[in-house]
Write a protein that binds this DNA or RNA. Structure first.
Lengths: 168, 168
DNA sequence: TAGTTTGTTCAGTCAAGACTGAACAAACTA
DNA sequence: TAGTTTGTTCAGTCTTGACTGAACAAACTA
């Protein structure tokens, strides 16, 4: 009953669009990733456009975006002018790195605000400090996950992966 | 030089709008939180509207939203008909809980897709498994941060806070 | 040479949802 | 009673940015 399978696949591709969208990326980027999870590929730009019923312009823009994030990789087949795409290494960890970058920017804002704040506002300083500590804990936590992922997926060496980074 | 301070404050409020927006919440919600970090308050709905130069309707909607998330709390002053708002306990952890909820929903999608997928697609199954494991690690990691936060901020008891949850 | 194919870019359209103004109900005051 | 004040809700506007179609450059083919 391949009908059920097809339904499940397109449903998943659709949902991945929404999930990725909630991470602040375009929906089509999610569709591409979803499709590549379902089928290894590789896919040409035209194939992606047809399969997702979307303009080649959109595919071009979004493959570029995902490529910049390191989520997918582009490669050429010898004797074929088309570009082909497939998932890169640790695609999810790549997305996470983007989140870490966002948090670093947020912490910059906090820091410069703290610097500019006058003496009198001790309580505001305290709350800013609390917010910054929160971001710090979160960043630390993310990096743990990324590290663990790198070690597990990549290294056949399978080095330390105890879930906690060594305390500073 | 209170001018510099005012500038820093409104700059921060503005930036918090953008930061919160990148988390998928309305910009004004971020402005409210930002202002409350700068000044403890409490603020009435009218005060917030005036201070942020925004309609009372928007404030009403967004305070409601933040209240539902548990980020701010509403309370009454005796002999005053107005509602007053201020930051709640562990406001940032509350926002994080929302993220955890989103991830749980994503994992549900993954699971039902795996169930519906036919035998033949073993490699797709494998990639789905990988994605699910990633979400699992991330969720675990978030909950650690939330737990640690709860323990540190709230409990004077300061119970176990070793950075890792007990394995199931 | 002219004609394809492929990927990119850009101006324009469209949709989602944030925000507003106005109308409203509830609780108060004079 | 009529008139305020306060918070909510809803229809409508407006902004943001995703997506498209068309034009284009580059690399190929005949």
């Amino acid at each position: 009953m391949p009908d059920t399978a097809d339904k499940a696949i397109s449903e998943f591709v659709e949902q991945m669009g929404l999930i990725i969208q909630s991470e602040g990326l375009p929906r089509i980027a999610g569709h591409i990733v979803g499709l590549m999870i379902m089928h290894e590929g590789p896919f040409s730009l035209t194939q992606l456009a047809e399969r997702l019923s979307v303009s080649r312009a959109s595919i071009s823009t979004n493959t570029r975006l995902l490529e910049d994030l390191g989520v997918i990789v582009r490669h050429a087949k010898p004797g074929d002018r088309q570009d082909y795409f497939r998932l890169g290494q640790q695609p999810y960890a790549r997305i996470l790195r983007g989140v870490v970058r966002r948090m670093r920017r947020a912490r910059d804002v906090i820091e410069s605000t703290r610097d500019a704040l006058p003496e009198g506002m001790a309580d505001a300083q305290e709350r800013l400090q609390e917010l910054d500590a929160f971001y710090e804990a979160l960043t630390e936590s993310f990096l743990n996950v990324i590290d663990a992922w790198d070690a597990e997926t990549q290294g056949s060496t399978k080095q330390k992966r105890d879930g906690v980074r060594p305390s500073p």
